[in-house]
């Protein structure tokens, strides 16, 4: 087992006017250490100016997404030992504007997420205000959307998608998977509005099944599956 690794970290400050550079840091490591641990070691002991975003450290909040050795991953969820290399390259996620170093601007990503109305739409307003009953679901109904509701909005799928790279208007795998998640929910009554945005030019038809979104998803959401099923639903209404 290695005692030390080199972190090759992308450094960029758009306000400085200088081009991006890579800086190498030598980091002592122990067993089961993650890339996030190594980056925080650098920030604490070697270079306090390094900017990165993180929070929960256990793959729940989805804050620490970055390109680790060329693949979008959560830094807190990636063990250094599993990469099996002496030098780890860390870059900010693709397909997002860079705020600084490893921090990206995800406002466009969340805007697209909001555009698919990721909440239950109901017509029974009185029942919503004064509930008298529960909305029961069978196991089969639950399994139709459960997998897709595990999304933590980390944005890794969006960073991996080649269609987003070529065309930033594309809704993207996360938003489309959430769209499908809500129309498959038996409690939802907003399928008509949602399918309208799915069928638009930048919607479900732009996906070409490169599958990269599903490969990098840390929660097993499989956005590619949701998008193909959404396409079937849009065309055949089933």
């Amino acid at each position: 087992m290695r005692n030390e690794i080199i972190l090759k970290v992308y450094r960029f400050d758009p306000t400085s006017g200088k081009p991006p550079t890579y800086k190498r840091y030598s980091v002592p490591i122990t067993e089961r250490e993650t890339v996030l641990d190594a980056l925080l070691y650098v920030k604490e002991h070697q270079d306090a100016t390094l900017s990165l975003r993180f929070s929960c450290r256990m793959a729940v909040c989805g804050s620490c997404g970055m390109l680790i050795d060329g693949l979008p991953r959560l830094a807190c969820y990636t063990q250094i030992s599993e990469l099996d290399t002496d030098e780890i390259e860390v870059r900010p996620m693709s397909n997002y504007p860079i705020v600084r170093d490893l921090v990206v601007d995800m406002s466009g990503f969340f805007e697209k997420h909001r555009s698919v109305m990721p909440w239950l739409i109901r017509r029974d307003v009185r029942e919503q205000n004064q509930p008298t009953k529960q909305y029961l679901q069978s196991d089969e109904q639950l399994l139709e959307y459960l997998q897709f509701s595990y999304c933590i909005k980390c944005g890794l799928c969006y960073a991996a998608c080649p269609v987003v790279t070529a065309m930033d208007e594309f809704l993207g795998p996360q938003a489309l998977a959430q769209l499908y998640r809500y129309i498959r929910d038996s409690r939802d009554e907003g399928a008509t509005e949602r399918l309208k945005s799915a069928g638009e030019f930048n919607g479900v038809w732009r996906c070409h099944f490169a599958g990269s979104c599903s490969q990098v998803c840390p929660k097993g959401v499989d956005p590619a599956l949701a998008i193909q099923l959404l396409r079937r639903r849009t065309l055949f209404m089933k």
Partner: peptide, 21 residues
């Protein structure tokens, strides 16, 4: 593209299986 060669959604359990592959 119309989901015909893919598996149905399931309850995700670690290690996650990608149902579309």
């Amino acid at each position: 593209h119309f989901g015909y060669t893919l598996k149905r959604p399931h309850r995700p359990e670690f290690p996650y299986e990608v149902r579309s592959f």
